[in-house]
Design a protein around this nucleic acid. Structure first.
Length: 427
RNA sequence: GUGGGUGUAGCUCAGGUGGCAGAGCGCCAGGUUGUGGUCCUGGAUGUCGUGGGUUCAAGUCCCAUCACUCACCCCA
């Protein structure tokens, strides 16, 4: 072993990798059904975009960014998240000058230089969705419902939705001051005291029992909301109720990035250990202005594909190994291999997933290959069959085998496979 | 960045008190020269994470280092 993957980078190998694609497909399906379009944004951006977009006070920006100078001397950064990029692209290309909201989704890797642990990686895979240019609380609820639908489509049953609001520029400052007053009276360690000054809300999220106990009676944002934030929050909740999406009001829920305002939410999985957030989102009504754009509200979420993989595993939903193909060719001899190669390619063109044994593998080895491929049928072709102009079609589940004329093999297989479950790509 | 745990075959892991490198699974081959998934038999694969030290002798003891892993912090 001369090389190994960089620290903190998960890899997904077959057969597990099929589930990785399925996770993306589940959320993409839910997004598409709600009229969201795909957007492809760069993996790296001007460092300043993230510094201003994510927030100078966040850990993500202060110590977790993969920042480097390119050959032209520009400071660029591997994206630590997607929202800043998606909003930047929206503004740069004027997508927001058309009808609003702009509804977009994207997916891929993001990067944070952190100490890896279970569910926390330096290269993390996310699915991201954004609705830009709307203040309608119905869209807040819509994004929650889309994420929820994604989890449901994957069969996850233990996901919890935690919901909160962070107020807006009107009401948050007063709350923030009240919270800071409260926190200053506590016995906290130096880093936490500092955090209380820079971003007091995050102290509410501390997991340490000694901190937790002290902030138990901290003032809550929900008691300090302005009328419009309260109305917005109530509306979101009643819409979720209409949709039958269950949530838990979590007044201490805080998101790590500075840009969040009003609605925030998090999806949590109880079987995951320390890193249990499998998705999170919220409103970012001031972000556009932070990065030099016009006032443009927005809401969106990102879900962690890696953590969803862990959740699927924890719920026992990764057990089955999907069939790779429906048909598998077993040739005996060079001429048979040549003929079967053509048959297999014809099957593929006809929409039937097919593979075959290579390397002049013996009959026994080739049959093993057929069994491992998960194929429903093996096509066995040897000298005798060539002479007869027929292929042996063996049902690998029942063991039943019949000879089919070579000329009729494609329609015959299509017919036999029609009733049976076909392996779908990425399923 | 802080703390704990673990590094032995492709994978999961055994290897008291130092004494010839092991098992199961997987892989390959044969039993069955035209039949897989079961069964039986045989086979291949190791710088024992890396470097140094102690010793006649180190997978085993000591030091360092790296990696992996879990937790804190933080977050998807």
């Amino acid at each position: 072993m001369t090389f190994q993957a960089p620290k903190g980078v998960p890899e997904y190998l077959p057969p597990r990798s099929a589930a990785f694609l399925a996770v993306r497909a589940a959320f993409a399906g839910a997004a598409t059904a709600a009229g969201y379009s795909y957007i492809e944004v760069p993996v790296f951006e001007d460092t300043e975009l993230f510094a201003r977009g994510v927030g100078e006070s966040t850990d993500v920006v202060t110590k977790e960014m993969y920042t480097f100078a390119d050959r032209g001397g520009r400071s660029v950064t591997l994206r630590p998240e997607f929202t800043a990029s998606v909003l930047r692209a929206t503004l740069e290309h004027g997508l927001h000058t058309g009808q609003l909201p702009v509804k977009l989704w994207t997916a891929g890797p993001a990067f944070r230089y952190e100490r890896p642990q279970a569910g926390r990686y330096r290269q993390l895979q996310q699915f991201d969705l954004e609705a830009i240019g709307t203040e309608d609380p119905a869209v807040d609820a819509e994004t929650v419902a889309i994420a929820w639908a994604g989890y449901q489509a994957l069969g996850l049953t233990r996901v919890r939705l935690l919901l909160n609001t962070l107020g807006c520029r009107q009401c948050r400052p007063a709350y923030r001051a009240a919270l800071q007053d409260f926190l200053r009276g506590l016995d906290l360690d130096a880093p936490t005291r500092e955090r209380a000054e820079v971003n007091p809300l995050r102290v509410l999220d501390d997991k340490r029992p000694e901190v937790r106990a002290q902030v138990e009676n901290a003032p809550l944002i929900t008691d300090h909301l302005c009328a419009s934030c309260k109305a917005h929050h109530d509306r979101v909740r009643s819409l979720l109720e209409d949709l039958g999406v269950p949530w838990e009001d979590t007044p201490r829920l805080v998101r790590g990035l500075d840009y969040y305002s009003r609605t925030t939410y998090e999806f949590d999985h109880p079987l995951l250990g320390a890193q249990s957030a499998i998705g999170g989102g919220g409103r970012y009504d001031g972000l556009s202005e932070d990065i030099g754009g016009p006032p443009l509200p927005g809401i969106g979420f990102a879900v962690g594909v890696d953590r969803i993989m862990l959740a699927l595993e924890a719920e026992g939903l990764l057990a089955e190994t999907p069939a790779r193909v429906a048909v598998y060719g077993v040739p005996m001899g060079e001429e048979a291999a040549r003929r079967l190669f053509a048959v297999v390619n014809e099957l593929r063109r006809a929409g039937v997933a097919a593979d075959m044994a290579f390397d002049g593998k013996g009959l026994k080895g080739a049959m093993k290959g057929a069994a491992r491929s998960g194929a429903a049928y093996a096509l066995i072709l040897g000298e005798r069959d060539l002479a007869a102009g027929a292929v042996q079609v063996k049902n690998l589940a029942s063991g039943e085998q019949t000879a089919v004329p070579l000329a009729e093999i494609i329609p015959t297989l299509q017919e036999r496979l029609a009733g049976a479950a076909m392996p779908a790509p990425g399923a």
